[in-house]
Write a protein that binds this DNA or RNA. Structure first.
Length: 425
RNA sequence: GGAGGGUUGGCUGAGCGGUCGAAAGCGGCGGUCUUGAAAACCGUUGUGGGGCUCGCCCCACCGGGGGUUCGAAUCCCUCACCCUCCGCCA
């Protein structure tokens, strides 16, 4: 949610920013919102004046009753005033709800450093870093992993459906080693690990911005709960409705969870092997910072994730996403893509973004010196999140880069503390 | 799953339907005293929104929503959450 004051005072700036994000209906929502907001303020002025009179008259009736005087005339007038107030309150509520809904349709504004673009083709490659050259001949990971007995797509299909592969054998150890490597690196960098629910309620999903924007991407289950599409939903809501102590910032968390995504409409080679699955493990970073530290934190987090890819010896590149390819809540986003030699394509393994105060406004996560019981003005924090990293595609790149023609997969040096020197078979 | 009890400001905890944004205590902040600190004493101290003649003034908020009433923290309904007991259970 954007700052309502900004919307009122600089509607043209907001319109310009919204337009660059290329989100259907957002501009129309903005127009509706501006009108509704104006109407709302006029209505409120009227309503509040009448409420004020009701309050004073009501107080007067109390006084008269106490002293035993006649209040019947005043009471008679109050009846009329009250029903008028009630009528206005009803209109005000309807208008307010409409404004709230419209707010949910207006995306965050891009940072000035973000390239304006029309589609994913306008994303900018910030840099590309070469890793280890493939040690054997190149084959797609699904061939290698299936023949090694590490990946069993058919078993998963039997259990749940397509897009839910079963990992078995030594493949399981590779996944677990990678998860531990990521978490150990994050712990060193000061990220506190949390274990969180894998289901979130509607309030949480709305607060982080998955609803209503990504409704169709989430699995909805009984009792009004959603399977989390990313642990961002769970972790960020840790501080919903809280006033944090400014001295405690930045707060840094990490979590390793399965992520559930419906991925409706995906097909073909896009979804082969581990490329795109409905359930995948991801280690996530989440940060809460002071408003003026958000963008610096974005760089820090991105470099941290890059360092992991570099340590694994993988070839990767950093993309600065253009305005059209950013999410609804994001103000600036980097994607990290790893090179898949077996498929000769880039695979997205991380997406790191700052949501500025956009998400914090919905979350009502503020900070001030001394926290909730402190003093001074509260200010909305900046929230950030990013993957470090998504496991399946990283595994795919490792397998394709380190597979040996003699069979098995070499262990990257960074994983040797967890797996030994290998090779894995 | 069944039965009962609860939800008030940063915390504890009072609140006959009208003088309640809400007692009291704790905590926080400012001050007096002190070489300094503590203690004591005095003052102050919620969030969000709106108006403005920038000194203030107004509105809303006592878990969420709805209702009764001239008037609701207080009465009624409903939902959520918490606690206790029973049942079940990794």
């Amino acid at each position: 949610m954007l700052d309502p004051t900004l919307l009122r005072d600089h509607p043209d700036d907001v319109r310009r920013g919204v337009r660059t994000k290329r989100i259907d209906g957002a501009e129309a929502a903005l127009d509706d919102l501006l009108l509704a907001d104006e109407e709302h303020r006029l209505l409120r002025r009227d309503l509040e004046a009448k409420q004020a009179r009701r309050n004073t008259d009501s107080k007067r009736i109390g006084e008269l009753k106490r002293t035993g005087e006649d209040a019947s005339e005043l009471i008679r007038g109050m009846g009329e005033l009250s029903s008028e107030v009630k009528r206005l309150e009803e209109r005000e509520r309807a208008l307010r709800e409409r404004i709230e809904r419209l707010h949910l349709d207006i995306p965050n504004l891009p940072h000035e450093s973000v390239p304006v673009g029309e589609s994913e083709h306008d994303n900018v490659v910030v840099h590309e870093r070469a890793g280890t050259a493939p040690v054997g001949s190149v084959r797609p990971h699904w061939d290698t992993m299936t023949s090694l007995g590490w990946l069993d797509a058919e078993a998963g299909t039997k259990i749940a459906g397509t897009g839910f592969p079963v990992v078995r054998g030594t493949g399981v150890r590779l996944f677990r080693a990678l998860e531990r490597f990521f978490l150990d690196r994050l712990a060193e960098a000061g990220f506190a690990e949390v274990r969180v629910p894998l289901l979130a309620n509607e309030t949480s999903a709305t607060a982080t911005g998955q609803l209503p924007d990504k409704e169709g991407q989430m699995y909805r289950v009984e009792d009004g709960l959603y399977l989390i599409p990313t642990s961002e939903v769970a972790v960020t809501n840790l501080h919903r409705d809280e006033i944090l102590d400014a001295a405690s910032l930045p707060l840094r968390y990490c979590a390793s969870t399965p992520c559930f995504r419906r991925e409706a409409g995906s097909y073909g080679k896009e979804v082969r092997g581990l490329n795109r699955v409905h359930q995948f493990d991801k280690v996530e970073m989440v940060a809460f910072t002071e408003p003026d530290e958000g963008y610096a934190m974005l760089e820090t987090m991105t470099e941290l994730a890059e360092a992991m890819l570099a340590a694994l010896g993988l070839t990767y590149r950093r993309l600065l996403m253009c305005t059209a390819d950013m999410g609804f809540t994001q103000a600036k986003k980097y994607d990290l893509e790893v090179w898949s030699p077996g498929q000769e394509r880039w695979l997205e393994v991380s997406s790191i973004s700052t949501l500025t105060d956009f998400q914090a406004r919905r979350l009502k996560t503020r900070s001030r010196p001394g926290g909730a019981s402190g003093s001074g003005k509260t200010s909305l924090v900046h929230t950030l999140n990013g993957s470090a990293l998504a496991l399946p595609r990283t595994v795919a790149a490792i397998v394709e880069t380190y597979q040996l023609d003699a069979g098995g997969v070499m262990v990257p040096e960074a994983l040797q503390p967890y797996l030994g020197e290998g090779p894995l078979v």
